[in-house]
Design a protein around this nucleic acid. Structure first.
Length: 744
RNA sequence: GCGAGGGUAGCCAAGCCAGGUCAAAGGCGGCAGAUUCAAGAUCUGUUCCCAUAGGGGUUCCCAGGUUCGAAUCCUGGCCCUCGCACCA
């Protein structure tokens, strides 16, 4: 009787053997020994290279009631009937350890109460009923019989409670494996940890000729034809030695010299390189090339897909009619890929023109090393890493890959009310039909970047389609323009060039979603503000530059639309061939940006007051800071930049300012307020706002705009101005860049 | 179990490595207003809670810690995704 187990150390707790009385077992001769096992087990053994000769058949029922000797222990135990044995696992014969295996315990209890079965098999009823689990493993948190603890706690009564049994088994096995200790019934292994004892018992039994190895998948594995997979041991298998430490070291080196998109994947690659072991690179079946030096084998497809980028460079030549693949020799490829050998000789050997050979060499040299290979993240632990291994093995350093790009898996965003994709999938052709190619592309770009799984958001596609149409309309219609240049023109040019810079940066890292934000959404928003500031009459140069830049920035993402605009505005040639915009440093105008930001913040403040007070004002009054406040403010900024801003220090400097002379009584309060406000500000804003003389001029200049934005009359005074309209005495609240506000 | 990544407002998502400019970009969705005969489109405002003066309160998975100061740094915990092989 040969029982199979994953837990050899529990042999000490064996109380009986289980067989299925209904099943036909076979008696076989295995390398000189007679075994009784299941028929399925015969196939497995044969697949694993064992010689098995079938001698006889024996029904399980005939075995029931007999007894057999437990190896290593040497005691006899009875053979008992059970129907819970899965014949496709192990040998179809189970050694029963009710102390530590919940299945066995429940089976034993069921049998002990099943008088019919006991009688039917003419079993010694008192004897069977007296069978008790044998405690063998001590583990913290459990009594001497861990299986009994868990089965009772989970109230498992029957073998039919499969799910509970599974989780019971897992709990017991895990606890015992990591923290269990063999008790003193376990002979030489008493006191030993389970993890260790398991290996020792296994080795000992094999050594004594009382056990043998059977390989089995860790879980059920099914073929596409629905038969269950078994483990086969094959001989003369070919491997790629990815486990070789020297090779690994060079692959690490290659990886370090590469660019990765996104960079965050690098750690994973290094890890995979370390973790990879020798790879079985051939098999007997399936698609693939025959192994050249051993025609019995087919090259496993992951193994020969790793340098086909090199093949691509010359594929068009090899596939031309004048080349006979059957005649090609290794010398040709040595010459083309490595530059080894003499071209005349190579051409003659392969029956090719020298010019053909040269052409191949030229093509390969032109394309190699490849700039980037882009693939899904599931290929990191195999194809992409293999690719690197094999390039390192075959090619000189200068032909190692320069970059890999990795992305997640696209999914259709779920739970959208207007989902057009009930099945969770949208065909590319369908998407192009519904939204058009450009809107589809931009939706994909917006979906996600880096290793995220991008989602296709149909609401977004719908909305962006309209916005793109509006963009074409905007870019191609006739605008009334002016030549006059204002602060807001400088401002727009500044944000435009920042957008160029930021878009380029994002594109270079292949962060398309980020690029889109800078190139489209931010620019559109800024353009909206610009037009309002300009009363819908843009500066001629600005309009032209904006349309041109925006179109070029978008060209990689929405090529058709960009081309259409490009033609309409009389662009030179194809936009696809036009250079991507370059940011110009001198377009950046932080002063203009600070001024516009100041205006936005001021209008925001007014709106906030309106909301808080529920006043819908017909008149809005701003009070700007007088010279003494501005000077104290500038001192404070200076101190803050020096990191020495404190009320005391500021007071000291402020007292000496001539402009502050008549305001000594107000200095302490003002200084305190400044210190608090400036302490919370970052260095960037501080520098932007360190000068104050433009505030009033700019505000006066923007009066008309403020009036139309606020739908109210707007006035500006300086604090202390004698004719100021200030019924609520608000003026004194002003700070530089924070004018006081009065609404009525 | 091993390896990698992650948890941010109704949703998607930036920020985190280099702490302060963060009630937190941008988008989608929602709400309100303008426009319109109306709808759609467009534009504007708004979308954590409270607030009759630009303010206050509570937030960035949870619990601690470091710091004058934490979405960001440290420790512990909970949860999620992916990969784990001879298959592309």
């Amino acid at each position: 009787m040969v029982a199979a187990t994953l837990r050899p150390e529990t042999i000490f707790g064996t109380t009986n053997i289980w067989v299925d009385p209904e099943v036909e077992y076979v008696e076989v001769l295995v390398e000189g020994e007679r075994w009784i096992i299941s028929q399925k087990a015969v196939e497995k053994l044969q697949a694993q290279g064992r010689e098995v000769e079938i001698l006889d058949q024996v029904v399980g029922a005939h075995l029931v009631g007999q007894s057999c000797i437990v190896p290593l222990v040497g005691d006899p135990v009875p053979i008992l009937p059970s129907s819970f044995i899965d014949q496709s696992i192990g040998t179809g014969i189970v050694s029963s350890v009710p102390s530590d295996a919940p299945d066995d315990l429940v089976a034993l209890r069921e049998l002990q109460e099943d008088e019919d079965t006991l009688v039917r098999f003419q079993l010694d009823i008192p004897f069977v009923k007296a069978l008790d689990p044998i405690p063998i493993i001590e583990v913290e948190g459990f009594g001497p019989l861990p299986a009994a603890d868990v089965v009772d706690r989970m109230k498992i009564k029957s073998l039919r409670e499969q799910e509970k049994l599974e989780s019971a088994k897992e709990e017991v096995y895990r606890s015992e494996y990591y923290s269990g200790t063999m008790n003193d019934r376990c002979g030489d292994y008493a006191g030993m940890g389970v993890e260790k004892a398991k290996e020792r018992v296994r080795a000992r039994m094999i050594e004594r000729g009382e056990a043998d190895l059977l390989y089995e998948p860790s879980g059920p594995v099914f073929c596409r034809c629905l038969t269950r997979a078994i483990v086969k041991v094959v001989e003369n298998q070919w491997f790629l030695a990815y486990g070789d430490p020297d090779w690994k070291a060079r692959v690490h080196e290659a990886l370090d010299s590469m660019a990765l998109y996104p960079e965050t994947i690098r750690k994973q690659f290094h890890n995979v390189i370390d973790w990879l072991r020798d790879w079985a690179s051939t098999h007997h079946r399936g698609l693939g090339s025959r192994l050249p030096w051993d025609e019995n084998w087919v090259i496993e497809s992951l193994s020969d897909s790793t340098i086909y980028m090199a093949y691509y460079t010359i594929a068009h030549i090899l596939q031309s009619s004048e080349v006979d693949p059957g005649k090609l020799t290794g010398e040709l490829f040595d010459y083309v890929f490595l530059g080894d050998g003499d071209q005349e000789e190579v051409a003659r050997l392969n029956g090719l023109d020298v010019s053909r050979v040269e052409e191949m060499r030229r093509e390969f040299s032109y394309w190699y090393p490849f700039d980037i290979r882009h693939s899904g993240k599931d290929l990191v632990p195999n194809h992409l890493t293999f690719c690197l291994f094999n390039h390192v093995a075959l090619f000189p350093k200068e032909h190692w890959p320069k970059a890999f790009g990795i992305n997640g898996y696209l999914a259709v965003k779920q739970g959208r009310k207007m989902s057009k994709s009930k099945e969770g999938a949208i065909y590319l052709r369908k998407a192009a039909e519904i939204w058009g190619a450009d809107a589809t592309r931009i939706t994909l770009a917006q979906g996600g970047e880096g290793l995220d799984d991008p989602s296709f958001d149909e609401d977004f596609a719908e909305s962006i389609k309209k916005r793109l149409a509006a963009l074409v309309e905007m870019a191609t219609s006739d605008w009334k323009t002016v030549d006059e240049w204002r602060t807001v023109d400088s401002w727009f040019r500044s944000v435009l060039h920042r957008a160029i810079r930021d878009t380029r940066k994002a594109m270079e890292r292949m962060y398309h979603r980020t690029a889109l934000k800078h190139a489209f959404f931010d620019l559109q928003r800024h353009w909206g503000w610009y037009l309002r500031r300009r009363g819908n009459v843009p500066n001629r140069k600005i309009l032209r530059e904006f349309i041109e830049v925006q179109t070029k920035l978008l060209a990689p993402i929405t090529p058709h639309l960009a081309e259409e605009i490009w033609q309409a505005i009389g662009g030179d040639g194809l936009i696809q061939l036009a250079p991507y915009p370059e940011p110009s440093e001198d377009a950046l105008d932080w002063r203009a940006e600070a001024l516009e930001d100041f205006l936005k913040a001021l209008l925001d403040d007014v709106r906030q007051i309106m909301r808080a007070t529920a006043i819908k004002p017909r008149k809005v009054v701003f009070y700007t800071s007088p010279p003494w406040k501005r000077q104290v403010y500038e001192k404070a900024v200076g101190l803050r930049l020096d990191d020495r801003l404190e009320v005391g220090a500021l007071m000291k400097e402020a007292r000496d300012l001539p402009a502050a002379k008549g305001h000594a009584d107000r200095l302490p309060v003002f200084c305190k307020r400044l210190v608090k406000a400036l302490s919370e500000m970052g260095p960037r804003d501080l520098e932007r706002l360190s000068w104050t003389e433009d505030e009033r001029v700019f505000l006066l200049d923007s009066l008309d705009f403020a009036r139309s934005e606020l739908q109210a009359d707007v006035e500006v005074y300086e604090e202390g101005q004698t004719d100021a309209y200030d019924p609520m005495l608000r003026a004194s609240h002003c700070t530089p860049w924070r004018p006081a506000i009065y609404l009525e």
